[in-house]
């Protein structure tokens, strides 16, 4: 971070921002060209095809087949619902657990234990309980998304500045005032870290469930294309999922920028999921 901050204002005779944007685009265009060349010159067409063919497959069949567009829409719906449930339930459980030392000491280890279970191993159970349709995907996405929300809400409630609480009490504030004016606002950055992690995890859960068993969703079409050695529409479909993922992540970022109270440094997401300032 400091290395970036101390970078010169100009790189190769242009403003830093433009140089960064140019570099990004150069990487993307370079990668696309490399894939195109690889697809045309070297690849086995039953495993990979050039980008131009993938783009054509995206227009037809992916975007022109009602069933596939419907399946993509269904995936968006499943992710959105699983995500919404993760936030609401995760925040409620997180606040209940984070609300007192007793509750945190009693329940958090159990939550962390559940969080640590590789959930893919429970997939058959989800299908048995929730069936082959959307319900099992939503449940599986929720089971992935809810934990990061809980853990980050608890963490956010925990690092309340004791001096803020004491100031609140000295002004005659009740426990409700403490929660409203100190604990909750203090929790918000950590909550958003949880939301971003939860977005990624929810999508992972829904897509895993789709791939595991699907009777007409994106998982079904993915399997059809893969098993028929038809890579162009397969990659086009995966590309559509990537676009959906980017769109959801942007939504969370916009929400964060709008809703974050106060002028504070935005919490950054690093690989360990911890908060940095």
């Amino acid at each position: 971070m400091s290395a970036l901050d101390s970078a010169p204002a100009e790189i190769m005779g242009m403003p830093r921002g433009r140089a960064v944007a140019l570099t990004r685009w150069a990487i993307i265009v370079g990668a696309a060209l490399a894939l195109e060349l690889y697809g045309r010159l070297f690849a086995d067409p039953s495993f990979f095809q050039p980008l131009s063919a993938i783009a054509r497959a995206w227009v037809n069949p992916i975007m022109s087949d009602e069933r596939i567009v419907g399946a993509l829409g269904m995936a968006v719906f499943e992710i959105a619902l699983a995500y919404g449930l993760s936030i609401v339930v995760g925040a409620a459980i997180g606040m209940a657990i984070g609300g007192s030392n007793f509750a945190r000491a009693s329940f958090l280890p159990i939550v962390l234990l559940l969080y640590a279970i590789p959930q893919v191993s429970l997939m058959p159970l989800f299908v048995l309980v929730f069936g082959l349709g959307a319900a099992s995907k939503i449940a599986f996405g929720f089971s992935h998304g809810v934990f990061p929300v809980i853990v980050n809400v608890v963490a956010g409630m925990r690092n309340t500045n004791p001096l803020h609480l004491r100031a609140m009490r000295s002004m005659g504030g009740t426990r409700a005032d403490e929660l409203r004016h100190v604990v909750f606002p203090n929790m918000v950055p950590s909550f958003f870290v949880g939301l971003r992690l939860a977005m990624t995890m929810t999508m992972l859960g829904v897509i895993l469930a789709e791939l595991y068993v699907s009777t007409g969703g994106i998982g079904y079409f993915t399997r059809v294309y893969a098993e028929n050695y038809n890579p162009a529409p397969l990659f086009a479909l995966i590309g559509s999922l990537a676009i959906i993922a980017v769109a959801f992540n942007s939504l969370v970022r916009v929400a964060e920028r709008r809703l974050m109270p106060g002028r504070r440094p935005t919490a950054r997401l690093n690989l360990s999921g911890a908060r940095t300032k």
């Binding site: 004491r166 000295s170 004016h181 606002p185 203090n186 106060g262 504070r264």
Partner: peptide
């Protein structure tokens, strides 16, 4: 009674 603690007791999320 009013208390004045160190400056960090201003709530940073409020103006």
């Amino acid at each position: 009674i009013a208390f004045v603690f160190q400056e960090s007791t201003l709530f940073p999320w409020y103006t």
